[in-house]
């Protein structure tokens, strides 16, 4: 079992967002989490890489509680992608290689330019050069770069927080197609919070709805 959520509750300022949520996630799983806004979908994702901690309950990664891991190492393995992509000042290459300057990634092989260019190609970003400024790109292009940046860390799970909601149709299709391919091919679990009904063509996804403080599984 990759990730295991056991009776998780989260309370913010005396407001219970959800309680007793349990979920088991295996490598290769594709999981969609829907539900009304304000139900705590994003907050649930943020517990998995410890951007926040649950009020009660336990989350395990490969059988060990998340709190046993060094938090930087945990976040590299369970990689969170924001709803609106965040780029830092600098070139595309600087953005993609940003984490490789961090202490927690010391000893990691820094990807070559060829690898980066290949990934840009896979995400249909052939018209972008590594030396381009990242800040001026469109939201759709930035979100695809955010995916590449996350994948370079070789995570075990990707947490996607409505990754396509801010995108135009073309970018959305590219990202969705790639999410599907990732879920099928790589040794990776994907948890995705989503409003839009994304229906993978070849993959079967487990669908959950977070509402009224609980997580319910939906029929496929």
């Amino acid at each position: 079992m990759l990730l295991e959520l056991i009776d998780i509750s989260l309370t913010f300022n005396d407001n219970a967002l959800f309680s007793d949520v349990s979920l088991a996630v295996d490598t290769g799983d594709l999981i969609f989490i829907g539900g009304p806004s304000g139900s705590g979908k994003s907050s649930l994702l943020r517990l998995l890489n410890r951007l926040n901690d649950p009020t009660s309950g336990q989350i395990n990664l490969e059988g060990r509680p998340l709190t046993d891991y060094k938090v930087a190492e945990l976040r590299r393995q369970i990689c969170y992608i924001h709803q609106t992509p965040v780029m830092v000042e600098g070139t595309v290459k600087q953005n993609l290689l940003l984490p490789f300057a961090f202490e927690s990634l010391r000893g990691f092989r820094v990807p070559t330019d060829e690898t980066l260019i290949e990934l840009l190609h896979e995400f249909k970003l052939d018209d972008i050069a590594l030396s381009d400024q990242a800040m001026v790109l469109s939201v759709g292009q930035k979100q695809r770069l955010a995916f590449i940046r996350a994948l370079l860390l070789q995570p075990k799970a990707l947490l996607l927080d409505e990754p396509t909601s801010a995108l135009d149709r073309d970018s959305r299709l590219v990202v969705e197609e790639y999410v599907e391919r990732l879920a099928g091919q790589k040794n990776l679990a994907i948890l995705m919070v989503t409003h839009l009904d994304f229906k993978p063509k070849h993959m079967k996804a487990r669908r959950y709805i977070l509402k009224r403080g609980g997580l319910e599984e939906r029929a496929r």
Partner: peptide, 16 residues
């Protein structure tokens, strides 16, 4: 906050 959180999500510590 967003940029700091991005750094943290990519495995940075608070100093980085």
């Amino acid at each position: 906050r967003d940029e700091i959180e991005l750094y943290l999500c990519l495995g940075a510590n608070r100093r980085e």
